[in-house]
Every structure is written in C-alpha cells, then in structure tokens.
Design a protein around this nucleic acid. Structure first.
Length: 606
DNA sequence: CTAGGGTTAG
C-alpha cells in the first residue's frame, strides 16, 4: 500500500531530541512475558519541579453541548486563557503529579505544540513520574501525524510491558498510528486484541481502511460495527462516506445518507461536505448541489467539494463562479481549492482564467504551487492543444515532474494526434517511471492508429520483457443494489445474448442516423470488420446496454469505467442517448460524461 | 488529564 502524499509531506524535524528507547520490531509475535525486556526510557532534561496535587485546568468551564453533534472538542472547549497562561500556572505549581503533567501535556498536544508536549514528557521522567495511559494517549497521536512508526512502536512496546495495551484510548491511538503509517495489518492486530471496543476504536480502524484505500473493507467493518450494536457517531459517518465516493457506490452512499438524517447529523459540516463529495463522485451532481445549497455554514472544504464536483461534471463555468463566490464571502481558498478551480478550467479550456488563478496563488494568497497545480496547468495546456507550450511548461517546473504529469501531456498528444511529440514525452515518462502501463498502452494505440505496426510490435516486446500486462478495461453499473461488472470483450455475463441483440438493433438505427465507427483507436492489426466487432465489445457499451435493457424507459443510466472512455464509444453513446431517449452518465477515470439527446456535457472537449 | 473525522488524485 502506498503512503499518501499527505503523509509524506509532514515534516519530521519535531521528533529530534525525543527518544523512546526500546528494542526493535517483532514484539507482536512474543508472548507477553518476553515483552518485559522492552524498556522505555525518556531522555531527561536537567531541570525539574516538585510534585503537586491539583489540576491546572480546574478553572476550565464545562463543555456545552453543541446542536446534537459530537464534535464538541474543537468548537466548545474554549480555554479561558491561552496555553501560555496555563503553562505559567503549571510552572509555579509547587507540587506536580501525573495528572497535572497529563493535563499540560494534553493541552500542548491539542494546541498543536508537539515539541512542548514531548518536552513535558521528558521533564516528567526527571521527577520519577511514569507516563500512564493518559499521557501516552495524548502523545501517540503526535507520532500518527508525523508518521513515525518507530517511535509509535516504542510506545507500543512500553504499554505492553506496563500491561495497559488493552486500554481503549491507547488501543484507538495505536490503531490510528499504524494506519497512518500505512501499516493497516498492524492496526487490525491491535484492534483484534481489544476486548473492550467503543465507537472510537471501531472507527479508528474504519478510518484507517479508508486512509489506506481499502474502501470495501472500510464498509464491511462499518457494517460489522453496526451489527455489533455500536452506534456510529458523527465522526464515523464522515469517515465511511468517502469510501462510497471512491467506489462510486451510490446505493450505499444513499443508505448512509439516510442513516445520517435519522441520526440527526444532517447539519454537521464534516458530514455534509463528505456527502456533497460522495454524491458528485457517484454521478449525482444535482443531489450534491442540493445538499450544498442547504448548508448553513460553509468552509473552504465544503466550497472545494462542490467546486470539484462541478469541475468533474464538466460545468467549468459554474465551478469558476462558485470559486469567485467563495472568495466574495470571505472564505480563503487553500491549496486544494486551487486544485479544484484549476481542474475546472482544464475541463472546459479556460486557459487565461487558469493562468490568473495559478499566479494569484503566490501573489495574493501566499500559497506555494505544488505538483498538483503544475499538473493541472500542464493538463489544461495540453487539452487546449497547446502541446509545445505544455511541454516547455513541464520542463521548466520548479518541482521535479513525475510520470503522471508527463502522462497527462501524453494523452493530450494522443487526442491531438501529435505522434512526434508523443514519442518525446513517452521517453521522458520511461526515464522516471519505466513501468508506466498507461504510457505503453497510449503509445501502442498511437502507433496503431498511424499504421506503424512495426514500432508497436517493438514496444509490445519491451512491455513483455518487463513482464507488464495491460490492465483490462472494465465498466460497472449498479442494478437493484448489485454491481454488475463488464470486461472488454468478455461474454460471460448471463445477459450477454440480450445485450448483443439490443446493441445490434441500436446499431442499425445509429447507422441510419449517420454513425460511422471510428476504428482508429483499435490496437490490433486486423481488418476493418473485425475492428468494428472489437468496438462492439467495449466494456462501457456493454454496461450501458445492460442498464437500458433492465430499467424502465426514461431511467438515468450510470456507468463507471476504470480507464478513459474510448473515442468511438463516446460517439456511440451519444447516439444511444438520443435513440433510447435516456440520460446516460459515464464516469471514467478523470471526469463525468453526461449524455443526453445526442450530446455530451463535455462538449467533446476531454 | 486521554483516542477516531470532511475537500486534490494519476
């Protein structure tokens, strides 16, 4: 499992000077008695204070409840004075005990002052006070955030030795720590050993699955949690809903939405933003917009979700005007919001606007342009046919271009049929990423459409030598709460005869209305007739046909495809939408195509 | 005195 960008971008300098010394790796496998040999030491500071009874937060006001939501911590736990004043009080306390240390450590940790929190843990050691489950529950999340699994494991070793590893708080922190370090198997093991699990421990693992891209497992565990009669809270919903967004499983997303409303969490901004994202990624931008319009409070995340939604659905102008509206309302766009608005520009070809936004990042908002922003602009230039400009832009990037940045340009070269530049770009890709499947496939396609069979064969040989195999194209459609998958050319679906019959009938009508098969994208060196047959078996076409056959007239068809929609299928589905009078929505790997009355929302710009 | 959450994205 890959570590996400978010993890890699976290600084680690904060951990310097802190040392939880303990043995190495595999204490998992050891019987408990042997774990004792793992010691836990703190590097002590020289100064120390006497132990004191009392609590520096004694003066704190009680938390007030907050509109039925659970997330009271951030909003309503207002300190009467800043953490600095708390520290001053703490420092003059004549005697300090574990509780007072825990309190100040938690205070620092919750205020993001991690160095101070860890310094206090060290100081605590100088006074003979031993960190307990409270201390460590405050400290562990620091190592989750900074993805330091070594430090996290040291603490794990220590808590096993102290016999507090089954503490729910510690357990949840450990589950989270391992998940954020991309070691979800270890999260599972910690979780499985917790004999007392509350909603938070369940959700730590659910969220862990989502963070590691294991969406199906996240949903499975969420269901298990509900079955175990643990009621999901607000946080649990905002953790699982993104799993539906990623999987594009509208029916599950809808069920969760229903659950959210019944639970009274509908106005929670975290959940509402997740729902906006989920509906738009599942192809229902109207529902997404409805939820967004009903939200009372909007932050940069909710704005970004709806802007990205419109961008993915090809409503570039709407996305741009929402971005302007966000700024007008005084919400400052962050880096992600810029990714969204640049994506919007790229999908509709707003070149000048995009440049304006790109430059305003540093000049107006003091934000650095990161790889994603460069990628979006490169994508925009490429789509707009400014291939050379895009090439130069990428070559001069301040960030080292990755294979994926070059890949967007390569697909633009393919759209604009510039084989010469494509070859140049492909070589760039292969130098950074010699196993980039997409690049091999695209180049093969381009050679094929130019009749350059020799070059194609050469490239295929190169692929074979590397042991690379083409990822099969597949499409899927939800039908009565079941997902039906289709693989290109695969005839094993039980309804295949009906599908073919349908496609044949539609095809006759299509040809009458002027459809001509575009066989240029067919990879194989076979005759025209055979090429047309191959197009006939494309997965998106099968899924659309299956959807139409099995639904009432007028029902919207939603299909998801794992790779870019094929040019010929794009034309064909336009015809199909007109002939069958259906709205057909196809999500490919980068956007949505809304086919209606013979047109597509992308305006053929994709 | 302690633990889990939403937006990028190939």
């Amino acid at each position: 499992m890959e570590v996400s960008n978010q993890m890699l971008h976290r600084p680690v300098s904060i951990l310097q000077g802190v040392s939880f010394v303990c043995g190495n790796a595999s204490f998992w496998e050891m019987p408990r008695s042997q774990c004792v040999s793992f010691c836990f030491e703190i590097v002590y500071d020289d100064d120390g204070f006497e132990i004191c009874v009392g609590n520096v937060f004694d003066e704190m006001p009680q938390r007030t409840s907050n509109s039925g939501d659970e997330d009271v911590k951030a909003e309503t736990c207002i300190m009467p004075f800043g953490i600095d004043s708390v520290r001053r009080v703490f420092e003059v306390m004549p005697r300090k005990d574990v509780v007072s240390y825990n309190t100040i450590i938690a205070g620092y940790a919750q205020s993001g002052m991690y160095e101070d929190a860890l310094r206090m843990v060290r100081e605590m050691g100088t006074t003979d006070l031993k960190p307990d489950s409270f201390t460590l529950s405050s400290v562990l999340p620091i190592f989750s955030e900074y993805v330091d699994v070594i430090k996290g494991k040291e603490i794990h070793g220590y808590v096993i030795r102290k016999g507090i590893d089954s503490d729910v708080y510690i357990g949840s922190s450990l589950v989270d720590m391992y998940a954020k370090s991309a070691r979800i198997e270890d999260s599972e093991r910690v979780f499985s050993r917790l004999y007392c699990r509350d909603g938070i421990s369940w959700n730590s693992l659910v969220a862990g699955y989502v963070q590691n891209g294991r969406y199906n497992e996240a949903l499975r565990l969420f269901r298990q949690m509900v079955t175990a009669k643990v009621k999901p809270g607000a946080v649990a919903f905002s953790s699982v809903i993104p799993a539906c967004a990623h999987l594009a499983t509208l029916h599950l997303g809808k069920q969760l939405h229903g659950y959210v409303l019944r639970g009274g969490f509908g106005s929670n901004i975290f959940i509402a933003s997740a729902l906006v994202d989920m509906y738009s990624k599942c192809g229902n931008i109207k529902a997404a917009r409805k939820i967004f319009d009903r939200m009372n409070v909007l932050d940069e995340v909710s704005w970004t979700a709806i802007i990205m939604g419109h961008a993915l659905h090809g409503h570039g102008h709407e996305a741009v005007s929402l971005f302007e509206e966000m700024k007008r309302q005084g919400v400052k766009p962050n880096q992600v919001a810029f990714v969204a608005v640049l994506t919007a520009c790229s999908h509709v070809g707003l070149v000048d606007e995009a440049w304006g936004y790109f430059n305003s990042m540093t000049k107006v908002y003091g934000l650095n342009q990161e790889l994603e922003h460069y990628a979006a602009v490169a994508d925009l230039l490429g789509r707009a046919g400014k291939l050379e400009e895009a090439y130069n832009f990428i070559s001069k990037m301040c960030v080292e271009p990755t294979g994926s940045v070059w890949s967007t340009l390569l697909s633009s070269c393919s759209v604009h049929k510039n084989l010469e530049l494509a070859e140049k770009v492909a070589e760039k890709i292969f130098t950074v990423d010699s196993e980039n499947m997409g690049a091999y496939v695209l180049m093969c396609n381009m050679y094929a459409s130019n009749g350059r069979w020799k070059e194609m064969a050469k490239l295929r040989l190169r692929m074979r030598k590397k042991g690379l195999r083409k990822k099969p194209a597949c499409s899927w459609i939800e039908m009565k709460n079941k997902t039906h998958g289709f693989v290109s050319g695969d005839r094993s679906h039980p309804s295949m005869d009906k599908i073919n019959e349908f496609l044949k009938a539609v095809m006759e009508q299509m040809e009458k209305e002027g459809y001509v098969a575009d066989t240029s994208g067919v990879l194989h060196d076979v005759d025209e007739e055979h090429k047309r047959e191959l197009l006939f078996g494309h997965s998106e076409r099968l899924a659309v046909a299956f959807g139409i056959i099995n639904t009432e007239p007028g029902t919207t068809i939603r299909v998801t495809k794992n790779i870019r929609i094929c040019t010929d299928c794009h034309v064909a589905i336009k015809f199909i939408s007109k002939i069958t009078e259906r709205e057909i929505i196809v999500r490919d790997n980068s956007r949505f195509h809304h086919f209606n009355r013979g047109n597509c929302s992308c305006g053929d710009y994709w």
